[in-house]
Nucleic acid binder design. Structure first.
Lengths: 114, 114
DNA sequence: CTTATATTTCGAGAATAATGGAAATATGGA
DNA sequence: TCCATATTTCCATTATTCTCGAAATATAAG
């Protein structure tokens, strides 16, 4: 997953998909938005999907891609536990980040642009 | 940073340094612990350092490498904010992770192996 | 000043990844 | 069936990264 995200284009794709929400975005629209060739995009979508970071579903002629929240959460959890185990200086600021985004919790509105 | 960590060997190095704490580990000992050639290690340490994830200091004949907690915290913060903005499903489990590592906070013991 | 230890730098070869054009597949509609 | 749209697959080229041996640098000690 880290190497999949360690690529400007793929990170941009993933960010776009996360911001788009669970409904996802069609491949063609991703290509237009990010101004990349459809075949390059397809290859990168494949890499992200193979890493488990995104999912896809067909809808008519389009194929809709969406971020896999669980996977990203798992990745962050792995990094945090792997890091915090012995390094509270890493996690401490993260509680502040979580507090700032504040919408994070079982009882929050799905979309509240800060 | 993501691409620096998106490499098995470098991730192993970084994890080792995080676990070692602020005192750091000498390059030679890293090489022995992870069983990698010293020149390969040096190249990877360079990549991690250039990404800002680790720092180095000379100590006698050895060069001691240590994890940069602030950089890792910043990376996680970026990922969390970039992701949570609109995706509480990602952050929600992370509060649980933070609660589990529990040592994370201004007033916690620096080392409490769970 | 020579020797030993620790680490880096250099350089070449191999492996891997990225890019982009062109063709192929899949779906929907006339 | 035929055409248009959407996406993928195939392929070759280029670029980047990885790996490892050998030499170079830096520090310490006798």
């Amino acid at each position: 997953m880290l190497s999949a995200l360690g690529h400007d284009g793929r990170l941009a794709i993933f960010r776009l998909l996360v911001k788009a929400g669970p409904q996802g975005v069609a491949a063609g629209q991703i290509a237009r938005t990010l101004d990349v060739l459809p075949n390059s995009l397809s290859a990168n979508l494949n890499i992200l999907a193979h890493a488990g970071l995104i999912a896809s579903r067909r809808e008519g002629r389009s194929i809709i891609y969406s971020a896999d929240y669980g996977a990203m959460s798992g990745l962050l959890g792995f990094l945090m536990e792997d890091c915090c185990n012995g390094a509270p200086e890493i996690c401490s600021p993260l509680t502040a980040v979580l507090a700032r985004v504040e919408g994070c919790g079982p009882a929050c509105a799905p979309k509240s642009p800060a």
